[in-house]
Design a binder for these strands. Structure first.
Lengths: 340, 340
DNA sequence: AAGAATTGCACAAACGTTTGTGCAATTCTT
DNA sequence: AAGAATTGCACAAACGTTTGTGCAATTCTT
């Protein structure tokens, strides 16, 4: 194995050529700049032989683009976001882009830091599942011409392009299903209240109830976090109420795990004592103590569409080339809802 | 809100100072270079007011370090790796580093591409859960002084520092437990065969059997992938054998999900028909049809230790400052093993 | 065969930082 | 009060690319 060459200069010396010529050949501009075919071949061969990999940092500085996309995710440990991140990463790399990953902990301050970090690192674009609805910084960046795609949610009052599930429809269908199975006292355990996907789901929940002449009981809508602990706490709270519920709509995969933990602790079984429908289909959903009825979100589609939009914006340079995607969810019916 | 300044030059002009001085102040070298206190304060105030964020690309080029760490993961959609990635990302950012995420699909060629990409992007270090045991490229990079930390596995025959679970002990304890519960025909569904964590687990499995005078039946050791599908296929294969098994040791969380799917299809129940112990504790493990006995790996510890090692190596510059970590697993006993 | 056109490459500047060094202006020393 | 020491900053080069432009050498044209 030949010794590696550390920059274009060294490679040029080996070839008795100028860095200019080497650069042009390796960037496919040999013809444009009339580099002879024989020189071209020598260069490409030597680049391989001496294992020359261009310094992307220097390149980024000169070209003012880094071929890097910032990805801000509320919780990369959550397989829902993990799957989205996976499709995004693979699609990005296939197009020559790398992903700088930032976990925002679903916290707005952390997210803001991440955004500033990414602009400092000159990310060509940012894909973000925002932690809240403080959209100022993102809109700012977008206005300055940096592509921004919002995923999993959208930011109301902005025109930032987004890719999300039709959360309203997902919740609506889930609740209609519960009503169809005879339930009337249906609780809804929410995630973060200020997030569009959450509020759309709550709207879907309310509208479905009202459509069927069931009054919305505000005590039945509770919670403020997408995590497991919140599902656990809110379930206990709901069980303690005088108004008895017969079913729970859990607005995330983690929330429903918390629900299960609380029910187990309370000695209640699914679905004989309490019925459940949960957002987010998971690999394990079918194998739970009671196979769970879920609202599946199309993770791969979200990732793919987001990356497509991003690439389109990066290519077209302008910001108005991206469209929004509202992807249909799917109700997967299993055994976690009892016929009343 | 004042208009933003786009580089240090513009900020310097606003202040009627040279970029040199501004740079020195913002990098905390005001004293070293005798910048007056009043100037210092003006600079920091203006930097904030004009929202100056240094171009990290230019900085990276000049300093020959990017404050960037490459993270290569076989499957970021798997919550096991997701959790590890999360702790690594958070720890990295807390120390001023960003993570470039690469999903290798547990494929060696993809991994090699990712490694070359990361060196081209001048990552300061690489944390990798290798897809195989072709260690050449990594060793090469390590020799050139770039810190490399192997996680979840190790690369035999190299001295690349690693952080992994004590997989041998984990499997050994799991099998001893199964034997203690009266099982003798215990199958083992493997992940990728050439990966240390897998082979260590298989060794642990074999040694535990032999320790208890149970002959190792090669037909009982099967499979070649950490994914769900492999668990499914191998289970069917095992069930079709004439030599009947009473228990399965599944070497990953995804494998055990495949096992469950196959058993369900075959109309068999856990643990009455078949007992299971699975690697990788998950949030749902306790809520499965039969609460699963698992071997828990310390994800957070792995991530934290890896990042600590990495930072140590980055600080000390030399490669021999990192130690290996072999972290203890934990057997979590639930109901998925029947007393024979 | 001489001028024009083409071929094939190299020079030098630039991207935005950081940093060794140098040099006025100020302050100190006696 | 004059020389020495200190203070406070700026100049210029460098990191490794890319690219507009220019200029020899070669080939073509008539």
């Amino acid at each position: 194995m030949k010794r590696k060459v550390k920059n274009i200069q060294e490679l040029a010396e080996q070839l008795h050529l100028s860095p200019t010529t080497v650069s042009r050949v390796l960037n496919g501009k040999a013809e444009t700049y009339r580099i002879s075919e024989s020189t071209s071949k020598r260069v490409t061969a030597a680049a391989k032989r001496f294992q020359y990999y261009p310094n992307r940092i220097a390149r980024g500085l000169k070209l003012e683009k880094t071929e890097t996309i910032g990805l801000i995710i509320p919780d990369i440990g959550n397989p829902y976001f993990g799957s989205i991140a996976k499709t995004i990463e693979l699609a990005a790399r296939a197009s020559g882009f790398s992903i700088i990953l930032c976990d925002s902990l679903d916290d707005e301050t952390t997210e803001e830091e991440a955004i500033n970090l990414l602009t400092g690192r000159k990310a060509d674009g940012i894909i973000v599942a925002p932690a809240g609805n403080r959209s100022g910084l993102l809109v700012d960046i977008y206005r300055r011409g940096i592509p921004v795609i919002v995923i999993d949610r959208y930011l109301a009052g902005t025109n930032l392009p987004f890719v999300a599930t039709d959360n309203y429809a997902g919740a609506y269908r889930a609740v209609e299903y519960l009503i169809g199975m005879g339930h009337r006292n249906i609780a809804c355990i929410q995630g973060k209240n200020d997030i569009s996907s959450n509020s759309d789901r709550v709207r879907g929940y309310c509208d479905a109830l009202q459509k069927h002449q069931i009054e919305v009981n505000p005590d039945f809508i509770t919670g403020n976090d997408f995590g497991e602990e919140n599902g656990f706490i809110q379930t206990h709270k709901l069980l303690g109420q005088s108004n008895k519920i017969t079913a729970i709509l859990a607005l995330s995969n983690l929330i429903s795990l918390g629900v299960l933990r609380a029910l187990k602790q309370a000695g209640l079984a699914v679905p004989s004592d309490i019925s459940i429908v949960s957002f987010d289909e998971q690999a394990y959903s079918a194998f739970l103590a009671c196979p769970m009825t879920t609202v599946e979100q199309p993770c791969e589609e979200i990732g793919k569409s987001a990356m497509e939009s991003m690439l389109k914006m990066l290519r077209n340079g302008n910001n108005n080339s991206a469209e929004n995607y509202v992807l249909p969810p799917k109700l997967i019916i299993r055994d976690s809802v009892k016929k009343q």
